[in-house]
Amino acid sequence: MISIGLDIGSVAAKGVLIQGGRQYQMMVPTGWSPRTAGEQLIDDLLQSSGHRPHDVHSIVVTGYGRVAVMEASRTVTEIKCHARGVAELYPQIRTIIDIGGQDSKVIQIDSQGRVVDFAMNDKCAAGTGRFLQVMANALGLDVSELAAYEDPEQAATINSMCTVFAESEIIGLLAQGVDKGSIIAGLHLSVGKRVAAMAKRLGIAGEVAFTGGVAMNQGVKRSLEQELGCKVLVPEVCQFTGALGAALIGLDAAA
């Protein structure tokens, strides 16, 4: 039984192929065509696992580009896929925070990994990967470098939640001579506060799992722990949690 899960996000497209106890992972930039990204992921997964298209039993696709992938056996929402993925990685977890390229969400799950409730951010970019990316550009850094440069002891206060205004605000702070590291810590705190408020509104129980591309940023993880007052667990494969969940949902359906 071979099951493929694809998570076509706004920035990156992630794929997981499960065969028995083995797992293969692939990631490509989504670019302008979610369909092409999905096709490429399937090809890459098949190539690395040494299988042919007709060997695959199920392809479950999630993410904003989920309807574009023609090969899909079915589509499932990111919410359900992250829930399934986290239930596999951390069976004890009841609260998931996922921060991706264009949205952030909080998901509550029960002991069976079923979604009990969820909340998503509004249509603006505040509290998402996009917010951090715009800020990194303004600071002349790549988004992946932010955590390495931060100075959490001297966090600057960033008042604007709005991406556009926050960008002007940090340009102002730079002009005042405020240290880059302090600004970055302030940005991480701003994302943490925003997403933590959404989580608290939903209610959190015990530890929290943190998934999505932004979970690779240690600064955001730290500020979430600070704001939530609990431990935040980041899976090693945080970016692949949704794709893993999708592949598992394909396996579950066949079982």
Partner: peptide, 26 residues
């Protein structure tokens, strides 16, 4: 859901509604 009369948030509302119905079916 918090929305307005525009169609700019159709996709983000759709995924929320889909997830809601997945909660019903699970």
């Amino acid at each position: 859901l918090e929305s307005d009369y525009s169609n700019s948030d159709l996709e983000s509302i759709k995924v929320r509604i889909e997830a809601l119905l997945e909660m019903v079916e699970q």
